[in-house]
Nucleic acid binder design. Sequence first.
DNA 1: GTCCAGGACCTAG
DNA 2: CTAGGTCATGGA
Length: 326
Amino acid sequence: MAANQTRWGERPREPVLADGHPGSRGRSPHHSEILLPIRDYNLAATLDSGQVFRWQRVDYAWQGVIGKHLVQLTQTDQGIHAQTAAPVDDWNFLRHFLQTDIDLAAILKTFPDDEPMRAAIASCRGLRLLRQDPWECLASFILSSTKQIVQIRQIVALLCERFGQPLTPSLSPSDGERVAEGRVRGALYYSFPSPQYLAAAVSEAELRACKMGFRAPSLLHAARQIAEGRLDLEKICSMDYAAARAELMTLRGVGGKIADCVLLFGYGFDTAFPVDVWIERALQELYFPRRRAREQRLRRFAATHFGPHAGYAQQYLFHYMRTKRG
DNA sequence: GTCCAGGACCTAG
DNA sequence: CTAGGTCATGGA
């Protein structure tokens, strides 16, 4: 029956664990799963919208790492189905990451009722903002400057592969074989390396070998500032937006745009409005089509026009610009 | 080969 | 304040 089609156009399917065995055959008793019954959530667009850089689509599912958890997510018409390779007794880490408790409809109502926003919303219904680990978010976006998203993924994958902790002990035996065969690629099976480890055990040359170029010293500097306690990422959440932004911008290689990404994706400062080349182009083309607007003009317009959840609106504009016309 | 990428930073005007 | 150059690297 036609009920087999989800509203996002993905075929519902028996979730498959990372070892590739469908159903219960070979399923370890250590595996855990849960169904989050949420409807207006576009999982594919959300995981592929340039917020996070190491989630991979595997058939109709998405595999990624949240902290130490290796997670597989599948969207069905029932909601989001999650499976982990290791036992889980508290799923709040997942609800927190996916932000399943926020009221998306209420946020959309605060967006300006103009033609560009209507088009952006229509182009990606159910797009969400995730809530990432602040350090992973900060490090990832330090590596993001003047890089295409596909390349950011490559760099982050190399970083995790070489300096993260392998999560394979919690996987089934067949995954060990896949690792040995080199079929498991990317950072999928590694934790994100901590600032303490990077500061203590990794050189700038080793980071440059991850193809991050001139961003290497910035990443190392950030790791050291945090490891030495000169910058406290946990203190950021108790600061107001301006202070938090200024604090992050004390780091080398972290300007307004990257700071806003971290505040928005890692802390939930919804007024943060990252302006990259895509957003600058969007504002210019959609809101100032005739005359050329200066950077400062665009920034002030954005700060007043998009409301209390401007960062959320920004993500819709970003995804809209990136996906329209090829 | 050329242009550009979820930029930041420095210098000149 | 704005404009331009520089920093690596690789996709399109």
